[in-house]
C-alpha cells in the first residue's frame, strides 16, 4: 500500500477569480501528524474540506487512506474523522444522544453505538454531562465531544481544523493530549492551526501556507533553521532609546533588525554568536542605553513565517472569528 496516508498533488480550487488553493501539494506518512500553518484565509480550511470530501476541487489529485477523494468519496468517508473549529454536534441533543446518533450513522448497530458512546464519554471526561444538552457545554467540553464524535469509528485519518481556536490553555492542553494519544495508537493526523506553538508542539512536519500555496515544508527544526539561525535579542528600559539601539544592531548584526516598540524589544540574526553578543553589549553600554534583558535564542516558527511571507500569521487575512458561510459565494 501507499506509504502516504494523505496525498495531494497540484490541488487547485477557485471561487470566481480568487484562487483559494493553487498547486497545493501534500504528502503525509502514515502514523504522523502534519501541520498546515498559515494565516486566516490562506487556504488551510479549503484544503482540509477538500480532503475530507466536503468540497470539490478543480485541479489536481488527492488520495486519503489509499482512496481517491474525487472518485471514491464514500470509501474515504468511512475512514476519516473531522473536527472543525465550529463544534459539529447537535446542540439540542445530549452528549450521549449525539455520540449514539453518530455511532448509528457510522454503521454501528444500536447496542454497539450505545456501548461506544458510554466508552467515549468516560474517556473524554464527559460522564457527568452525558445527559445534558450539548448546547449548554463549555467551549472545552464541546470540543471534546466533537473530537469524540469523530472517533465513534476509530478513523485512520483524522482532520483537525483549528482544533484549539478559542479554547483556554487548559482545554487546549487536553486536546493536545488526545491528539498525541491518537497518533500513539497509529492514526494519521492532519492539523490546521494559526498557532505556531501548536504546530511546534504536535506536528512531525509542517507545511506553511500563504495565499493558497505551500511556501515551505519541513520539520519544525528545519523550518526554523531556514532563517538565519541564532538571534540576539534585547529589551531596552526606555522606549526612547529604541532608534539608537536599532542603529547599533544594524551595524553589528548579520541581518536586518526587527523592532517591537510595544515590548521595547529588538532582535536580529547574528553570524557569530559570542562575538555578536559581546559587540552588542559593549556598544549599548558605550551609548549609555539601559538594558532590561539580553540574550541569544533560536529562531521561532513565527520568524520563519515572517521571513517566508513578509507577514506574521496573526496579522494577515481576515479577523479571527469571522462568520462562517455554509455555501461559498
Amino acid at each position: 500500500m501507499t506509504a502516504f496516508e494523505v496525498r495531494a498533488e497540484g490541488l487547485g480550487k477557485r471561487y470566481g477569480p480568487t484562487r483559494a488553493l493553487d498547486s497545493f501539494d501534500l504528502a503525509v506518512p502514515t502514523g504522523t501528524v502534519h501541520g498546515l500553518l498559515g494565516p486566516n484565509g490562506a487556504g488551510k480550511t479549503t484544503a482540509v474540506r477538500i480532503l475530507a470530501t466536503l468540497l470539490r476541487f478543480d485541479a489536481g489529485r488527492a488520495t486519503v487512506a489509499g482512496f481517491d477523494v474525487a472518485r471514491q468519496p464514500d470509501e474515504v468517508r468511512a475512514r476519516i474523522g473531522l473536527t472543525g473549529q465550529y463544534a459539529a454536534v447537535d446542540e439540542t441533543l445530549s452528549g450521549r444522544q449525539n455520540l449514539e446518533m453518530f455511532g448509528r450513522l457510522s454503521g454501528l448497530g444500536g447496542r454497539a453505538a450505545r456501548r461506544r458512546a458510554t466508552e467515549l464519554l468516560g474517556q473524554f471526561g464527559l460522564d457527568g454531562a452525558a445527559n445534558r444538552s450539548a448546547g449548554g457545554y463549555s467551549g472545552g467540553m464541546r470540543r471534546r465531544l466533537d473530537l469524540a464524535a469523530s472517533l465513534v469509528r476509530p478513523p485512520r485519518v483524522l482532520f483537525l481544523d483549528e482544533p484549539t481556536t478559542g479554547l483556554d490553555p487548559r482545554s487546549r492542553n487536553q486536546v493536545w493530549d488526545i491528539v498525541r494519544a491518537l497518533v500513539a495508537d497509529g492514526a494519521t493526523v492532519l492539523l490546521t492551526t494559526q498557532y505556531l506553538e501548536e504546530a511546534d508542539q504536535l506536528a512531525d512536519r509542517i507545511s506553511m501556507i500563504d495565499a493558497g500555496r505551500v511556501v515551505a515544508e519541513g520539520t519544525p527544526d528545519e523550518l526554523k533553521s531556514m532563517i538565519d539561525g541564532d538571534r540576539i535579542e534585547v529589551v531596552v528600559r526606555d522606549a526612547a532609546d529604541l532608534p539608537r539601539a536599532e542603529g547599533i544592531f544594524a551595524r553589528i548584526c548579520a541581518g536586518k533588525p526587527e523592532c517591537d516598540p510595544e515590548l521595547r524589544r529588538i532582535s536580529a540574526p547574528v553570524a557569530d554568536r559570542v562575538a555578536g553578543l559581546i559587540g552588542v553589549v559593549q556598544a549599548l553600554r558605550d551609548a549609555g542605553i539601559a538594558v532590561e534583558d539580553i540574550g541569544l535564542r533560536r529562531a521561532t516558527l513565527d520568524e520563519a513565517f515572517l521571513h517566508l511571507t513578509g507577514r506574521r500569521p496573526e496579522e494577515a487575512g481576515e479577523p479571527v472569528g469571522a462568520v462562517r458561510k455554509v455555501v461559498p459565494a
Binding site: 475530507a52 470530501t53 466536503l54 464514500d74 470509501e75 468517508r77 468511512a78 476519516i80 473531522l82 472543525g84 465550529y86 463544534a87 459539529a88 454536534v89 447537535d90 446542540e91 453518530f102 450513522l105 457510522s106 454503521g107 464524535a149 469523530s150 462562517r324 455554509v326
Partner: peptide, 11 residues
C-alpha cells in the same frame, strides 16, 4: 451549524 458538515463527512 457545523453539524451538517459532520453528516456530510460520514459514510
Amino acid at each position: 451549524r457545523g453539524v451538517v458538515d459532520r453528516f456530510r463527512s460520514m459514510s
